[in-house]
Nucleic acid binder design. Sequence first.
DNA 1: AGGTAATATTACCCAAAGTAACAGAAATTG
DNA 2: CAATTTCTGTTACTTTGGGTAATATTACCT
Lengths: 217, 217
Amino acid sequence: MDVAQETAQAQIITAVPARASRRTAERREELLQAALKVIRTVGAGASMEQMAAEAGITKPVLYRYFGDREGLIGAVAGRFAEALAERLALAVASLVEASPEQAIRAGIEAYISFIEEDPELYGFLSQHAAPDSAALVSIVDRVAKALAGLIAGRMIEAELDPRPATTFAHGIVGMVHMAGARWARQPELPREEFISYLVALASYGLANGGRPLQPEE
Amino acid sequence: MDVAQETAQAQIITAVPARASRRTAERREELLQAALKVIRTVGAGASMEQMAAEAGITKPVLYRYFGDREGLIGAVAGRFAEALAERLALAVASLVEASPEQAIRAGIEAYISFIEEDPELYGFLSQHAAPDSAALVSIVDRVAKALAGLIAGRMIEAELDPRPATTFAHGIVGMVHMAGARWARQPELPREEFISYLVALASYGLANGGRPLQPEE
DNA sequence: AGGTAATATTACCCAAAGTAACAGAAATTG
DNA sequence: CAATTTCTGTTACTTTGGGTAATATTACCT
């Protein structure tokens, strides 16, 4: 297309000042990065004005790109959820041949590590994470969906009915999320110990205290 | 002043309906009830002004009694947590002799019923329920603490190490909370089915797809 | 009755979300 | 190249809601 060519040319010209004209998506990405930076710095209280300032612009621009605060948070959450889901899938998928417990451990380990790497961002998202808010819905749904797929796969493989997979997935995400939040708040247990308890609970449930049935005795 | 006189008279009249002078704790209770009423009516967006208006007073009074918004929310959350913990303890305690699975089912059933009875309030609390917010900390800690006690008791009885009890308790609360929120949002499953999946997960874990090891086969 | 402690009100501040109106650069077109 | 439209940005405002200072009123106590 002609238009495409001319556009490309124009972009080469103004490409030097780097901050001038670009495609919308790229600009949006820049603004998102700036917002992330602010959130990581000042924490969950980050205001629209601060995020705009970090990007070197003013509020109305931000609002043009993201609609409203919910939109921005949603974009941040989406980004976060994407990365987390990917990492989870990777961690678990690399263990297709492993036992369920090993896969569960890998997933929980990945989840906890991930939020440890970005505590401010995680705190920000949790804070704006009402059950009815777009932010948490998107992040949990995203992660849980990925997880549900993994679980359903294994269940089918084991010739079990996969219908509970979605409920299981949300339950497990909530379990790790809540216990993780409490552990981050009051780390009374060493990390390894905490994680093994979580793995035990997720793998074998409460009924026998987190152990497979018929223990060594 | 005419107005003053009329006002005074009106107050003498309205003194009878119990809304005049009382001890601080009782007054606080009244204000709390008014706040609850507003929350249940208008939902999670309830403002301090609305709650004050419902109680027939103005904002500063509310602030005197509760310090700030967090304080009010904390009081509401505390009230809620108290009732919920009590109900859980009751439901589970009545089944001391029952199997773990039956006790777990009773607890989950009680939890879900409880939040179903007061969805607006639950939504309000969840909304203001950042991991670092006083509200959720108080409510989760309260409920989880009660649960941890129950779990620890059973584990000791079964001669298992009770150290994981606290982690288990937070995990289970998070599991039921998150899965419940999703189910309330999108009730694709019949209630009974949803609950039995939760019970399965909480009781026997993911490793064998929510079933005790060595099933009927 | 007169003084003091509660109890409540009015009228304000402040921060932050969100928006209307306007300004300058850049691409588009005759 | 000049005129126009479009894109990107700004200033300055409105609104809402949490929080508070100064002040008035009521109740209590001796």
